[in-house]
Amino acid sequence: MRYLVPLLLSTLVWWILTEAAQAWVVGVPVILVSTWVAVRLQDTDSGSAPTHRLNWFAVPRFALFFLWQSLQAGLDVAKRTLKPVPDINPGTLYYYTSIPHGTARYFFGAIVGLFPGTLCTEFSEDTDQLVLHVLDTDVDIALDCRRLEREIERLFKLPAADQQGRPA
């Protein structure tokens, strides 16, 4: 099972890259090596932080959510840029996340930078606090982040959190 997902993904990527040219003489060894590397790297990766498994059935839903949000993010930035005076009101948000420590939280930290008006700047391994930079402090960013958190919980099959975040 540990090898299956990397194997399938590697095969898919190779198939896409070669555009179905049936280059399996070269492809099979390459796919095997990349699968082995993927598993090795995952072993090294899960040293301190727990690894969360992806729920592949939740991926389409998350993809749609992400597409919609990145459209919003792009339009939002464009609107602010094209005003005669750039319409930004940047500030810092100390955000308490309910996502447990591990892969899912790292995923949150990285992807939050592509969502409207947020950018992760500081990541603490010990507390639940993230430091986000927001483009406009007047917008209720925390609400959007909650929504993103719920989607990520669904994506990673995490139990729904009960703790309410409290932005500073």
């Binding site: 993010a73 792009g74 930035v77 602010r80 409207p116 950018l119």
Partner: peptide, 10 residues
């Protein structure tokens, strides 16, 4: 960074 990431992504 906000501007360049989000606009380029879209």
């Amino acid at each position: 960074i906000h501007a360049i990431t989000k606009a380029d992504n879209l």
